[in-house]
Amino acid sequence: MSKAKKPKYKLLHQYYKYTGFYSFIWEGIRKAIIPTAIIVAVLFYVNYQVINLNEGLMYITKNFSDFFIFTVFLASETILGLIPPDIFIAWTKNTDTPLLYLTILAFLSYLGGVIAYFMGMGIAAIPSVNKYLYGKMTKHIINMQKWGGFLIAVGALLPLPFAIACLAAGMINFSRKHFFLFALLRFGRFIIYGFIIYSALS
């Protein structure tokens, strides 16, 4: 008598367990907890003990155009997330329409990931550049080949390098349709962090 076939979710769980996906997520969360806690703690301390952050952010709002700030943010989110998005989220708190600006940031972050994805596809078409970057990003590319959309989802939601995950997805020609869907989880990260940072600055 043949053995009963395992349900698909059990097979997936087994696969992710054996390939180290869960330990990868835990390691990413563990590394992210301290920096995130430090950022929130610094916001609280500076806001109440040094200078009113709302006034400082208001200064930025008055002296730099929205277009300039959004452009810097998009460039950062496309090129490996050079500036923590939390700083920009804090900035939206002092705009006339915080939720609208937060939504725009989330969209630009998503767009930055999409641009990084197509950059990865372009890089894959240039053998010399692809070989160089493949060597630099071997770990990320191998992880993308193993876990695909779940790695994109983790990068979208957690304080992990989202742009790198998107670039790697493009380099291995990951399904465009599935990439666009998994990357939408990026909006969830901005909702969660927006609530935390707005609470810290209130």
Rank of each mutant, 00 (worst) to 15 (best):
A153L: 15
G120S: 02
Y18L: 12
L11Y: 06
Q49C: 07
P7Q: 07
I126T: 09
I152W: 01
I126S: 04
Y59F: 13
A165Y: 01
I142H: 11
L151C: 02
L102W: 03
S199N: 11
I39E: 02
Y18W: 09
T19D: 06
W91F: 15
F162P: 00
T36Q: 01
Y198W: 11
G135D: 10
N54Y: 00
K31E: 13
Y132S: 03
N130S: 14
L157N: 04
K136V: 00
G112P: 08
V40E: 10
L80C: 03
L184F: 09
E55P: 00
L102H: 03
P159V: 07
K8A: 14
R189M: 12
S128K: 14
N52G: 05
K8G: 09
W26R: 14
I29K: 01
S65F: 11
F174K: 02
Y198E: 08
F68Q: 04
G170H: 09
I104P: 13
Y132C: 00
T61A: 13
F70Y: 14
M1A: 07
K31C: 11
I33F: 13
F174V: 03
Y198R: 05
P84G: 06
F67Q: 15
F179C: 12
N47S: 11
A156I: 00
N143P: 03
L102R: 06
L167D: 01
G148C: 10
P98E: 09
P98I: 06
K139N: 12
E55W: 00
I126K: 08
F187I: 08
E55Q: 06
S65N: 12
Y9H: 12
T92Y: 04
V40Q: 11
A124K: 11
L99Y: 14
R189Y: 11
A163N: 08
I38W: 09
I115M: 03
M121N: 10
Y134T: 15
L111W: 01
I152K: 01
M144W: 01
L185V: 07
M58S: 14
T61S: 13
F107A: 07
M171V: 09
T71E: 06
K62W: 00
A4H: 06
L133K: 06
I197A: 05
A200E: 03
Y16D: 03
D96W: 02
G149H: 02
L157V: 15
G170M: 08
L74K: 10
I123M: 02
I141T: 09
A183W: 00
L11D: 13
M137W: 10
T138R: 14
S2D: 08
A125M: 06
L11F: 04
H140E: 15
T103F: 15
R186P: 14
V50T: 05
I60T: 09
G188T: 04
G194Y: 08
I191S: 04
M119V: 15
K177T: 12
G170L: 07
V129Y: 12
V46G: 05
K6A: 13
Y59L: 08
L99V: 08
Q145T: 13
G188Q: 03
G194C: 12
